[in-house]
Structures are given as structure tokens and as C-alpha cells.
């Protein structure tokens, strides 16, 4: 998939918000919902993986570095999600302030 660039994601999202029209709205809704759902799902997945690793480490089956890496991945995913959420909120506010 390549490295995610938040700018690209932002542009993609914003361009969808700014375009008007029924069909576009339908597509946007679908694209958005799935995108966000997917993101949340993946983040909670990573959290679950991290928790699993912690239990394994306590049981003596996983090593410390594996657990640390899992925790870091969970944190990074969460931060990305939060960043995207913040951007979405910003975009939403911007639109709300637009004069039509």
C-alpha cells in the first residue's frame, strides 16, 4: 500500500466533502463509513493484539521486545486515527462556517 501520507488522505477526504450532488453524497457516505469503520476496527485489533501479547509475556511465552513492539504499533495506530478524526472535525467546522 505504501506509506500513508496524511496530506493525501486529507485532500481525498476534503475533496469528497466539498463536492456537492446527491450521487456524490451517496458515494461519499459509503466511502466514509467504510473507511472509518475499517480504521476503528484495525485500531481495536491492534489493541487486542497488544493485550494478548502482554498476557503471553506474563505467562512466559512471548518475549519482552515482541510485546513492546505490539504496544507501540497499537499506540501509533491510535494516534493516526485520532489525527484523522481531528482533521475531519476541522474540515466539518470549516464547512459549517462556509457561506452558501
Amino acid at each position: 500500500m505504501g506509506d500513508i501520507k496524511l496530506d493525501r488522505l486529507n485532500t481525498y477526504l476534503l475533496s469528497h466533502i466539498k463536492t456537492r450532488g446527491e450521487e456524490t453524497k451517496k458515494i461519499t457516505d459509503k466511502g466514509f463509513k467504510d473507511l472509518i469503520k475499517e480504521a476503528i476496527y484495525k485500531v481495536s485489533n491492534r489493541e487486542r493484539e497488544a493485550d494478548k501479547k502482554i498476557i503471553e509475556m506474563l505467562k512466559g511465552k512471548a518475549s519482552v521486545h515482541e510485546t513492546m513492539i505490539a504496544l507501540q504499533k497499537a499506540e501509533i495506530s491510535m494516534r493516526i486515527l485520532l489525527s484523522v478524526r481531528n482533521k475531519l472535525l476541522e474540515a466539518y467546522k470549516e464547512i459549517m462556517h462556509m457561506q452558501f
Binding site: 518475549s63 519482552v64 521486545h65 510485546t67 513492546m68 513492539i69 504496544l71 507501540q72
Partner: peptide, 9 residues
């Protein structure tokens, strides 16, 4: 090594 691994977290 263990302490180093902990550093990663």
C-alpha cells in the same frame, strides 16, 4: 538485553 527491550516501550 531485557532492559533494552523495555526501553522500546
Amino acid at each position: 538485553m531485557i532492559l533494552k527491550a523495555l526501553e522500546m516501550g
